[in-house]
Simulated scan of single mutants.
Amino acid sequence: MLKATAALVLCSAGSLHATETMVMSPVPWDAQQSYLERLRMPAEGTAEVCERLETGAKVQWRYKTSASVDFNVHARAGKTVTVLVRKDRTTRADAVFTAASAQEYCWSWTNNSGGSVELTLHLKRR
């Protein structure tokens, strides 16, 4: 399950409360090198999954949501954040990401709606 930061809490029912960011890092890959998560994001909430990848590492990602969210894949180097993929107001997407360099990369979803949104995300190392 995703870990909570600041005032955000992931309840046993899979719901988030507050308007902070929930972050999972590192990714708890299963034996098949996959990670699947289902959760409910509150209005104005953000969920983020981060992993340090080596140069050339590939991760297939996909998600679907019950309402439109803003999505991005970004890289972090210290305090610098570089957005590499951006999809605004989407309910689903699917692609393969290849790390250009060895650093931390994050998949991030932001719910800008006035209500909660269900998110199902799946990452798989290739």
Rank of each mutant, 00 (worst) to 15 (best):
M24L: 14
R38T: 13
T55C: 08
L53R: 02
E44V: 11
S68F: 09
R92F: 10
V49Q: 09
V23R: 03
E44R: 15
S12V: 02
E48H: 01
G45M: 11
C11L: 10
L84I: 09
V69P: 00
L36A: 11
V85Q: 10
D94N: 15
V73R: 05
A75Y: 13
S101L: 09
H74G: 09
Y63E: 03
V9Y: 05
R89G: 09
R89D: 15
S68M: 13
H74M: 06
R38P: 00
H17F: 03
A102Y: 03
A43F: 00
S34Y: 02
S15C: 08
P28L: 13
G45Q: 13
E104P: 00
E44P: 00
E48I: 03
R76Q: 13
V27L: 11
T19H: 01
S66W: 07
D88W: 07
R40A: 13
T91C: 06
A75T: 14
R38D: 12
A77V: 08
Q33P: 00
T82M: 06
T55N: 12
C11H: 06
K79A: 12
S15A: 04
Q32L: 10
E54Y: 09
M24C: 10
K87L: 11
T80E: 15
W29S: 01
S101T: 12
H17R: 07
M24Q: 14
A93V: 07
A57S: 15
V27Y: 01
K79P: 04
T19Y: 01
M22P: 01
R40Q: 15
S25R: 14
M41F: 03
Q103D: 02
T46W: 00
G78Y: 06
S15Y: 08
F71A: 06
C50N: 03
Q103V: 04
A18V: 06
R52Y: 11
A31C: 03
N72T: 00
S12Y: 01
N72I: 00
R38I: 05
V83E: 15
Y35K: 05
L10N: 10
R40W: 13
Y105C: 07
A31K: 02
L16T: 07
T90A: 14
Y35F: 02
S25V: 06
T91E: 14
S101C: 07
A75G: 15
L16V: 01
S68E: 15
A13Y: 02
E51K: 04
R92G: 11
E37G: 02
R40F: 05
E54P: 06
T82W: 03
